[in-house]
Amino acid sequence: MPDPILRLSGVFANIAQYHILQGVDLEVPAGAVTMLLGRNGVGKTTTLRTVMGLWRAHRGSIVFADRDITALPTPAIARAGIGYVPETMGIFSDLTVEENMRLAAASGPIAADRLDWIFAAFPPLKTFWKKEAGTLSGGQKQMLSIARAMAEERRLYLIDEPTKGLAPAIIATMAGALRDLKKQGASILLVEQNFSVARLLGDSCAVMDDGRIVWSGAMAELAGDAALQERLMGLSLEAG
């Protein structure tokens, strides 16, 4: 197993009076795709948001690339090299696709070869380059959301349910783009409910329940064990 690029140790986080994360211990290996699985409401999205500093860990530590980022403000965490794709996509509807991408490249213009790569992965973005992002379809918005994270090279990508509610053809596009990203050696922490996508992309896997990581190991191990899936997530995902 490669060295972890991200390590959460005993992380607790509250939202108002609700204790969402209750001691999360998670390691994301460098250069690999780690799937974060679990039923709805167990704390997957909160885990990603807490890493980004959008919600604060009130106990425990978050170490990214040997640097403690637990108390850093969100912009500093992003600039340390973490790209974030929220479940809500976070598209700026009033801005054009081009403006969304320009904004995503915080350190300067997007490199031409990188833009070519993004257009090859998501052709609609080229077609609608000058259109307002609010006019895109749901799938195209999701493409833009991921493309925005890819606008600059990041050391780690946190991606929250990128295939949620999308048509199969667009899921295939999305999975292809994430596979490209993986081939480039990116480290990815991916929350995903679509098990066939998870199985296709995942190297390792962590399963959450009740605000904790209840199981972690190789993706292949979980994918091949229906009983384990049943025990961890309450249903067998083999059908995917």
């Binding site: 959008l54 974030y84 976070g90 700026f92 009033d94 995503a104």
Partner: peptide, 16 residues
């Protein structure tokens, strides 16, 4: 303009 629409996402892109 982006901040007016979604300040949280602007911060997550690295802007203070």
């Amino acid at each position: 303009r982006a901040g007016v629409e979604n300040g949280e996402m602007v911060q997550a892109l690295g802007y203070r």
